[in-house]
């Protein structure tokens, strides 16, 4: 396999790697860079659990070639907290009880972050629409929606 030199900016840190031409972004993040907060489930774009942000836009890391993310800013869940200080979305997810098994949580929080960038004052319907690409089997979504609305309110 031809390995190609590539530079990624993961949570603001430059990483220079040799990657397989057919390596997926998920594989590079999780296997080469040891990013444990990126999860994977369906491998075909149904569940959204592998979502990371690429230049602040949500992308499915299990369906994207790593080389497509070359020279771009990748944000994973590890990039949100500042030391021990949680991002408001993380804090509200914790406080509202919006996390159960937690497997979808990184994707949910990152998707919510992109949503709030695009739409800082969302309605509950906006949040439902904005998060609809990520499945959660545990929570029934109510507390997730409440947490996102609370985080939006806080930034007002």
């Amino acid at each position: 396999m031809n390995r190609i030199p590539a530079t990624f900016y993961v949570n603001g840190v430059r990483r220079d790697l040799l990657v397989d031409a057919n390596a997926l972004l998920f594989e590079v993040l999780s296997d080469d860079l040891g990013v444990s907060g990126v999860h994977k489930n369906c491998d075909r774009g149904d569940c959204g659990v592998c979502t990371v942000l690429l230049d602040d836009e949500p992308v499915l890391s299990c369906l994207m070639l790593a080389l497509e993310a070359r020279d771009r800013q990748i944000t994973t869940i590890e990039g949100l907290a500042k030391g021990q200080k949680l991002h408001p979305l993380q804090r509200h997810f914790v406080e509202e009880g919006a996390i159960q098994c937690g497997y979808c949580t990184p994707a949910m929080i990152l998707t919510a972050k992109a949503l709030l960038n695009a739409c800082p004052h969302p309605s509950a319907e906006d949040v439902k629409e904005g998060l609809s690409g990520t499945l959660c089997r545990c929570t029934g979504y109510n507390k997730i929606i409440t947490a996102v609305l609370a985080a939006a309110k806080e930034s007002e």
Binding site: T76, R91, F93
Partner: peptide, 8 residues
């Protein structure tokens, strides 16, 4: 456990 899960 929610802190661990929220931070990856």
């Amino acid at each position: 456990e929610a802190y661990e899960k929220a931070t990856g």
